[in-house]
Design a protein around this nucleic acid. Structure first.
Length: 393
DNA sequence: GACGCGTGGTG
DNA sequence: TCACCAAGCGT
């Protein structure tokens, strides 16, 4: 089916007028709305992908301070880029934005293109972000269908499961050519403030009159919710290798994750997933063995490790229960490699460390004073207390 | 088309 | 407590 519009011309004009008024009265003062800078718009849109606006704001400020232009980002190291993104999640966004900045410099004169197709071709920029940047930063009359807009349109048209193609067509016909950026942001703001997933405030909605779901009373059921598969749980033994130099701050051995997949190229304490029926302590021992081999470090005392508090972390599709165990070691010869690194406790914040790993480090820091004492009287002597795999209290 | 990909807020 | 989900993209 094509060409068939559900809304009449008169309704479209009505919706444009009401949304424009709604936006002027309700728009939030977000930092990127104060600028007329396409780079600022692009950065804010990428950061906002699947992320709450309140979470984005401080990251956006720090990012624009450090990388005010595509050229500034293009010149940065990936490690610094990931470190600034730390805690925001979906880290491939940071790596793709980094790559996009480089392509802007090499192929677009260091500027953000206006053509939606050119934007769409950049890494990390899909249909939504291309439409948002083209309309908001450059005034191009194209739609920008995010989760909010999908929900608003599904209700306005009373469709249980509208396809992306249908939504793009309807939104494209609806966009106000007089101010496409304002219109698209108004639709999102409406979804965020009024036409919410649960308990939509239809009595306060500026476009309740033409809303088909409102007329049918089906707004709560539009769009139809999707069922998620239950997330698998994995238990992982973690080896925290601690070096206590006599006159310097404590140091830790970290490992860089693989180039692809979960938390790609982020840093972590070495860990191993528990095999079938394997205890976390045994898995941690395997991680220890690998870390000693890779780094050339040696155990100070080959005794039982001290168990640190467990960290349970929920990822988007996986739950991992980290069971960290602490060993004191002496760093070995020259063996290092780019995937392993000794890092001072105070320098962890400069590294791209995922949130769960930071929690492990925090527990270690809390336990450190005791370790110093034990180090002098022989670290090995019965340092174990509580269950080795006790979860976070 | 379904899945992999983080984290924190919310009812 | 926990399921849901937020200004999605790439494969």
């Amino acid at each position: 089916m094509n060409g068939e519009r559900i809304l009449q011309e008169r309704e479209i004009r009505h919706i444009r007028e009401r949304l424009a008024a709604f936006y002027e009265a309700n728009r939030r003062d977000l930092p990127w709305r104060a600028e007329a800078d396409p780079w600022a718009t692009l950065v804010s849109e990428v950061m906002s992908q699947q992320t709450r606006i309140e979470t984005v704001i401080p990251y956006y400020r720090a990012w624009m301070e450090r990388f005010p232009t595509p050229a500034a980002l293009a010149a940065a190291s990936e490690e610094e880029v990931l470190a600034l993104w730390k805690g925001l999640g979906y880290y491939s966004r940071a790596r793709r934005l980094h790559q996009t900045a480089r392509e802007l410099v090499t192929h677009h004169g260091g500027r953000v293109p206006r053509d939606p197709e050119a934007l769409r071709a950049l890494p990390g920029i899909g249909a939504y972000t291309a439409g948002a940047v083209a309309s908001i930063a450059h005034g191009v009359p194209v739609p920008a269908v995010d989760g909010n807009v999908r929900r608003v349109l599904a209700r306005l048209l009373d469709l249980p499961a509208p396809s992306p193609a249908l939504l793009a067509r309807e939104a494209g016909a609806l966009v106000d050519p007089a101010d496409p950026g304002r219109f698209n942001q108004a639709l999102m703001e409406l979804g965020s403030l009024v036409c919410t997933p649960r308990s939509p405030a239809c009595t306060r909605c500026p476009i309740a009159a033409p809303c088909r779901a409102r007329a049918e009373g089906t707004q709560e059921a539009r769009p139809r919710p999707i069922r998620r598969a239950p997330v698998p749980v994995r238990e992982e033994g973690v080896a925290v290798l601690l070096h206590l130099p006599p006159d310097d701050p404590p140091r830790l051995l970290l490992r860089r994750r693989p180039d692809e997949g979960l938390l790609a190229r982020m840093w972590e304490f070495p860990g191993e997933p528990c095999g079938e029926g394997e205890s976390p302590a045994a898995a941690a021992h395997r991680a220890l063995a690998g870390a000693l081999r890779a780094s050339g470090a040696t155990l100070i005392e080959p005794a039982s490790p001290r168990a640190l508090p467990g960290v349970d972390h929920l990822f988007s599709h996986l739950r991992i229960e980290y069971r960290p165990h602490l060993w004191q070691v002496e760093p070995g010869g020259e063996r290092a490699g780019s995937r392993w690194r000794w890092v001072g406790l105070e320098a962890l914040e400069l590294l791209p460390l995922p949130v769960a790993q930071q929690r492990i480090a925090n527990h270690l820091e809390a336990a450190l004073p005791e370790c110093n004492l034990e180090a002098q009287s022989g670290f090995s002597s019965g340092a174990r207390r509580g269950s080795p795999s006790a979860p976070d209290p």
